[in-house]
Every structure is written in structure tokens, then in C-alpha cells.
Nucleic acid binder design. Structure first.
Length: 635
RNA sequence: GCUGGUGUAGCUCAGCAGGUAGAGCAGCUGACUUGUAAUCAGCAGGUCGGGGGUUCGAUUCCGUCCACCAGCUCCA
């Protein structure tokens, strides 16, 4: 007998060798029906897994990540099986479950068309109806390679060859289809209730652009048809929030053919941008930062000294001035170094925090450009802090707190990643270890959960990245904190210690918004263009009923503007419904309807974008209301 | 940059087996003087992404360049 600890803490006894499925059946019929996989001592396994010793067991349904991944992973196998039936020449690459679905990469001579997808979907339905059992088996390495050779699957063969020594090589068989796979999977194909193939795209074998481009079919699956429908509806909803569409409709910014990746900010976008920058300046002043501005073009020699020439040249633009070679800055740090170096510093003056809203230019691949999210010039809300080694942790924590205070104003959720030393980086292992540990310690002291991104750091140091979500769940890196021992070395930065000797300061690079452009894009999608009053480019729109009210309206506009409110008036000769409709579509937070009654007793009829008609109130009452909302930065 | 797709009026889109284009909204003009999401009428608006080739003739066919979209790669 073995003892099995269930999720609720109860301990059950079973015969050794019992399968997970049998345990599930013994607990309840419903559970057995809905269970897709199981977590056994923390590892996700198939339901057919045999329990041989005491363990903890947590049955996973679609609602649990482990169950969901197994379900979608099996759907991807069904996709591969259908493709092999319809296109026997297709070679299989990989087919994992991903965040909102799954994909499978194929090497095929022809390109899949939408009609092909439809045919594949139909074949998948057949496979589901045929209800094949998924059977797991393992092979020793040489047999596994032989097996894949016989099946003419060169990509699978390569995968097996790259598996570490001693790794178990497992396969899953469903009907005539066998795939190399670590699993886990759901017991049979018939359990898949609702799926859809969503798109085809190219993808490099192993994500390396030097390798062959394969064809990737994306899809998703759900335990219920209604959930799939809801997912599709959400995607459509998200399209309406796309900042590129809203940016045009709300006249915030534009990107023209004449400047791919170089956005133009229009008057309304500038209002938003300036509010963000004003707020940023105010908060940074409070947090002990001084502001500087460094030039956009600097001599090429500087970039040799900083290491950018060796590590970042591909992304930089260059120019010539009077026969001299110059570079357009892709980062603000070298300029910041020069500012620090302009004079001697005492240990008493550290930490010194120098902030800069710096416009940087980077050559991004044309295919990577994406509205304001991915551009070729953007403004970083940068800062470089120079400090004593003993001040590192405290400074990092201060930055973490500052970033958190910004994001919470907008109600953003974020997650944090720690990126470690990349290939082709500067410095010694000791320096990197020290820097990485300092970041870790700060995160741990803050009790923050974080994911580690091996090899994803900057070339000069490790970093903590803050990722925000956009409207369709993609995450974008915004804030980052990077610890740097290299630049101070390269630029021979010093401070004078209490011993009267020169010492090397440590530096951090950090941004809060990341890029003002990207942050505005995320804000736009987050609010679906309906910015809260404190951010709205136009806060109030005054709508006179007819011409005789214009005089009152203009005086009212003046009064509100004197109080710092951003106001527009609609003096056109149109019906009130028409003016309201337009203001509503422009997502203006407040509309003031002005007719005879309002003119007579000096009031305004207030309509809120969110709540509709709020009734008549005095001008001062309205002013108080809106000013309070602005002061609170209400969302 | 790579793979696939797209490019027609300010916006959303129709059209063309090859004979130089049309709608709605927006704009302008006029009428209407209006109480919480579209008043009516008229007018104007386009080298059909750029430059080539085939053709008597190309917005339509072919190749090329540019831009955009999705994904890959890369990143704030």
C-alpha cells in the first residue's frame, strides 16, 4: 500500500501501481471526467501514470495551468496528425502549448492557405471523433534516432541528438501518429471539445534566423465551446483598443511613410505627453533627482570608449560633420558619464542621481516596427545614479518603489524579470556575480516574485525588467533597472573617499516609463482611449444648443480655462444629439450642454462620458468636481 | 532583415475577363434655430503606394522598390 496526500490535505491509501486515473475515479466521477493531468510531487504527469510510492497528488482540470497546457498540447498533436494525413511530405518540427493556445511548426514545400486551414480543421475533427488513446512509450537513444530516421523526421532526429545524456526519450502514439514528446498529454483525443486554428506564420527552426523558415500554424482550444467563443470575442474587442487605431481616431500621433518608425506627435498627443512628463519631473524632483539634457549627436570616439561600437554598432545611425565621424545616440549613458566626469566628486555627494528625458535613435529591423510600441526613435525617461558600493541595495530599492508608485497611479499590473549575463558582454565573472546578487537581494528584500531570464542582460550589466500587459495580453518591457560596473571603469569615473584617495563609483541606469512613446501606447490601450480626466487631452466640451447661447459659452470657456481646465467648444450649427455623439466618440470626459435655462441662472447641464446625463449644477460646483478628480488622478 | 498577406478620396470600403474609377462618413456651401449618441439639399475631393515592363491602351497582367499588417528574430 502507498499513502497519497490529496490537495485538501487528506491522506488516502491505495495499492501500489494504481494509476492516477483510477485514483480520480475513486474520489468522484465528475473529477475523473474533468481531470486532464495531475501534479505528482510538483511534477505534471499523465493520468495513466502509475503511482509506485507515497506522494502528493493534485488532479488538474482545464482551469489549472498544468491541465490547460496538457489539453492544448494534445490539440497540437491532433493538428500535426491532421497535417500528416493531408500532407504526408510535411516534416514535423516542434508543437508546444503556449500562453493562449498552441502552435506546431512544419517544413512543407507549399504555403498553407486559409482553405488548407479549413481542411486541416475538418481532419482534426475526425481525429477527435475517432477518439484515439494517447499512449506513452520510451526508447533508448539509438533506437529513438533510428525510429525517427525511418519516419523521415530530420528535425525530430536533431532534437533527440541534442537531448542531454541520460534524459528519458519518450514518445506519444495516437492512432497511426507518433510524436517525440516529453508530455504530459490528456488520455484521449475525444476529450478535446472546442478548438480553432487562428493563423499561419513563418518561424525559424529553433528561432534562429540562420536556419530554415518553417510554417507555423497557431491555434487554441478550450474545454467548452462558449469559452472559445468568448476568447474570440475578446480578441475582437482588443482590436478596437489597438493604440494605432485609437491614435489616429483621437488624433494623438501619426506615423507617415516618409518616416517609418519615426512618430509625429500631434497637438492632442502632446498634451498627454506633457502631462506625463510634468508628473515625471515633479516625482523625480521629490525623489532627489537632478535633470540634465545631453546632445543627440556625439563624436564616434565616445562610442568606442563606451563599448557601444563593439556591442551595439548594428543598431546605431552615424553621420559626418566636417570630415569628423559622429554617432546619433542610441542610449543616454555615455553623455551622462561625461556630465559626471566634468568635475571631482566627494563621497559626501553620493549618491548622485541624474535624470534625463533623452531622445535616442536605434535602427530596428523594419519587420519589428509596431505603432508607438516599437519605433526607431523614442524618449527614454532615463536616469543614472552614481554611488558608493555600500549604497547599491538601498538605491535599487528606492528605484523599485518609485516605479511601483508610478504604475499604481495608472492601475497597471506588471511582472518582474531578472536578466543575467549575455554572451558577448564586458567585464569579469566576479563583477557580474556581484551585480546580479545585488539585484537579487533587493528583489528578495522587497519580497517580489521574479522570473530569471538567463543571458538576457545588457552588455554592460544585469537588469531587473518591469513588464506591462497590452490589450491582447502581450507584455512589453517598460521600466528597467540595470546595474553597471563597466561604464565607470571605461570612463575612469572616480570619487574622493574619506581617506582622500580616488575610488570607483558604481552606477545604475534606470527608466520608469521606459519609453514615453511605448508608455503612451500602453496607456491608450489600457484605457481604450477614454483617458481619465487628469490625462484627457480635452477634459470638457461645451455644447451650446443654438447660436444665441454662444456668448455665454465663450465666457464659460474662458472661466474654465482660467482655472486650468482643457476646454473645447462646439459652435457648429448642429443639433445637440449630433454634438453629443461626436464628443462621446472623441471620448471627452465631460460635456456641458448650454441652453436658455443654463444661461438664465448661470449653470451648466453636465453629461459624463461614463454615466450620461448628470443634471444641472452651478459652474463652481462643476469646477470643484472636476478639479478634485484631476487632483486625485482618479482612474 | 526573413516568410506570408495588404496598399483605390482625410477615414471605412466597393469596383476593374485590361478601355484612365464609385459609396458612406468627414470637408465646403446653403436651408433648418434645434434639450442629451447622426436634419436636409447641393458642391468639391483621387497621377488607384513609387518608378519600370508587356500592350494600341495598365488602377487591373508581370517583375522591382517603398510602406503597412501578422508571425519569426530583436528590444525601451
Amino acid at each position: 500500500m502507498i499513502k497519497i496526500t490529496l490537495k485538501d490535505g487528506s491522506i488516502m491509501e491505495y495499492n501500489k501501481g494504481i494509476t492516477v486515473m483510477e485514483v480520480a475515479e475513486s474520489i468522484s466521477k465528475g473529477l475523473a471526467k474533468n481531470a486532464l493531468a495531475a501534479e505528482i510531487d510538483g511534477e505534471v504527469k499523465d493520468l495513466s501514470f502509475k503511482l509506485e510510492k507515497d506522494c502528493s497528488l493534485n488532479l488538474l482540470k482545464f482551469e489549472e495551468e498544468g491541465g490547460r497546457l496538457a489539453y492544448r498540447h494534445t490539440t497540437s498533436h491532433v493538428l500535426a496528425q491532421a497535417v500528416k494525413r493531408l500532407f504526408p511530405n510535411a516534416r514535423l518540427a516542434i508543437g508546444p502549448a503556449i500562453e493562449n493556445g498552441f502552435y506546431y511548426d512544419f517544413d512543407v514545400d507549399r504555403t498553407f492557405t486559409p482553405e488548407d486551414l479549413e481542411k486541416i480543421e475538418n481532419e482534426m475533427k475526425n481525429i477527435i471523433k475517432e477518439n484515439h488513446k494517447l499512449e506513452r512509450f520510451t526508447l533508448p537513444r539509438d533506437e529513438a534516432i533510428k525510429f525517427m530516421k525511418e519516419n523521415n523526421e530530420p528535425y525530430k532526429e536533431e532534437l533527440i541528438r541534442d537531448l542531454p545524456e541520460g534524459a528519458e526519450i519518450s514518445f506519444y502514439k495516437q492512432g497511426e501518429f507518433v510524436d517525440l514528446c516529453a508530455g504530459p498529454h490528456i488520455p484521449e483525443t475525444g476529450k478535446i471539445k472546442a478548438f480553432k486554428l487562428t493563423q499561419v506564420a513563418g518561424a525559424y527552426w529553433r528561432g534562429d534566423e540562420k536556419n530554415k523558415m518553417l510554417q507555423r500554424i497557431y491555434g487554441t482550444s478550450f474545454a467548452r465551446q462558449s469559452d472559445l467563443d468568448e476568447y474570440i470575442r475578446r480578441l475582437e474587442e482588443a482590436k478596437k483598443r489597438d493604440h494605432r487605431k485609437l491614435g489616429r481616431e483621437l488624433d494623438l500621433f501619426t506615423i507617415m511613410e516618409e518616416g517609418p518608425g519615426f512618430p509625429f506627435f500631434l497637438p492632442k498627443g502632446m498634451v498627454l505627453r506633457n502631462i506625463l512628463e510634468d508628473y515625471w519631473r515633479q516625482e523625480h524632483k521629490k525623489a532627489g533627482y537632478q535633470e540634465i539634457k545631453t546632445p543627440i549627436i556625439l563624436n564616434e570616439d565616445l562610442w568606442h570608449r563606451s563599448g557601444h561600437w563593439d556591442h551595439y554598432k548594428e543598431n546605431m545611425y552615424f553621420t559626418k560633420i566636417d570630415e569628423g565621424n559622429y554617432a546619433i545616440k542610441p542610449m543616454n549613458c555615455p553623455g551622462g558619464m561625461l556630465v559626471y566626469k566634468r568635475r571631482l566628486h566627494s563621497y559626501r555627494d553620493l549618491p548622485q542621481r541624474m535624470a534625463e528625458l533623452g531622445l535616442v535613435h536605434r535602427h530596428e529591423l523594419s519587420g519589428a516596427l509596431h505603432g508607438l510600441m516599437r519605433v526607431r526613435c523614442f524618449t527614454q525617461d532615463d536616469a543614472h545614479t552614481f554611488m558608493l558600493p555600500s549604497q547599491i541595495r538601498e538605491e535599487i530599492i528606492k528605484v523599485i518603489d518609485l516605479i511601483d508608485s508610478f504604475y499604481s497611479v495608472f492601475g497597471f499590473k506588471y511582472h518582474v524579470e531578472l536578466s543575467t549575463r549575455p554572451e558577448n558582454s564586458m567585464g569579469t565573472d566576479e563583477q557580474w556575480e556581484m551585480a546580479t546578487n545585488a539585484l537579487k537581494e533587493a528583489l528578495e528584500q522587497k519580497k517580489m516574485e521574479y522570473k530569471i531570464n538567463e543571458g538576457d542582460g545588457a552588455f554592460y550589466g544585469p537588469k531587473i525588467d518591469f513588464h506591462l500587459e497590452d490589450c491582447i495580453g502581450r507584455t512589453w518591457q517598460c521600466g528597467t533597472i540595470q546595474l553597471d560596473f563597466q561604464m565607470p571603469e571605461r570612463f575612469d569615473l572616480t570619487y574622493v573617499g574619506d581617506d582622500g584617495e580616488k575610488h570607483r563609483p558604481v552606477m545604475i541606469h534606470r527608466v520608469v516609463f521606459g519609453s514615453i512613446e511605448r508608455f503612451i501606447a500602453i496607456l491608450t490601450e489600457h484605457y481604450a482611449g477614454a483617458f481619465p480626466v487628469w490625462l484627457a487631452p480635452v477634459q470638457v466640451k461645451i455644447l451650446p444648443l443654438v447660436e444665441k447661447h454662444h456668448e455665454y459659452v465663450l465666457a464659460l470657456q474662458n472661466q474654465l480655462e482660467q482655472s486650468g481646465i482643457r476646454v473645447e467648444t462646439d459652435l457648429r450649427n448642429e443639433k445637440i444629439g449630433y454634438k453629443i455623439r461626436e464628443a462621446q466618440l472623441e471620448k471627452v470626459p465631460y460635456m456641458l450642454v448650454i441652453g436658455d435655462k443654463e444661461v438664465e441662472n448661470g449653470s451648466v447641464a453636465v453629461r459624463s462620458r461614463k454615466e450620461g446625463d448628470l443634471g444641472v449644477m452651478g459652474i463652481n460646483e462643476f469646477l470643484k468636481r472636476i478639479q478634485e478628480e484631476v487632483d486625485k488622478k482618479a482612474n
